[in-house]
Amino acid sequence: MMRRLIWRILPYAPALLILFVWWVYWTIKQPPPSVIPAITDVIKTGFELAGGRLGTDFLASMSRLLGGAAFGMITGVIAGFIAGLYRPIATFFNPLVVFFNAISGIVWLPLVIGWLGIGNALAIFLIWNTVFFIVFQNTVLGVQLVPEVLELGVRSLGGSRWETIRSVTLPGALPYILAGFRSGLGFGWRALIAAELVGATTGLGQLIFSGSEYHRADIIIFGALLIGGIAMLMDRWLLVPIERRTVQRWGLVAPDRRR
């Protein structure tokens, strides 16, 4: 019980340590606020923003992120299954995938602004572009690594091709699919902020951009803390519990220490 509680709290310790070092450094050196602001200024700015534009920016960013990521995950898993199950298809499309995967979404940004205009569609496209390839490649690998004997077993129980996909391939590939979701979400945040810096009028990316225009380091750091914090919480409260209930429960990956 005690152990469990400790392991719940302990992973936050490094973050707290960094904040502490920052506070000590600032107290001793007193640097100009445009270089590094005081921790208290950042908190104050946070409250000020919360009374102002923060709600709109937060909701705009979250809806873009979730929309783009969900779109990327769904299409990535479906395409990954098709390519993973039919090797000729994977071989056929491989050069194209390598080609597009190498090109960061930012490259498309100027073009896509022309096609989709500034706003949600643009951000969602760039997030999709990032999440899709990560999830796709993980899914293909996961599908191909499911031991063949598991499928043969279900076939000899009278299972159809669809039954083997449902009861063998899907759960068998899940560790890789979830790993793809986790890193896809992380990179999705990067794509979102990049897209919002130039391709939107609202959102956390715009908030940070406005901070840089007025040399407001406190706004920039507050934005960074918020983005990193949300990403951390989403990982620990959304994806980690799914992993714990599935692939860890089934003994496919080693359980983490928090059980």
């Binding site: 031991p147 043969l152 279900v154 000899s156 299972g159 089934w250 003994g251």
Partner: peptide, 30 residues
Amino acid sequence: PGRERGVVFQELAILPWRTVRRNIAHGLEI
């Protein structure tokens, strides 16, 4: 393959994501 010819493999072929009960019931579910 067909359900009139069942196979027990040398490698373990039961499904890690099904409990004992659900593994045994799989053929009947199908």
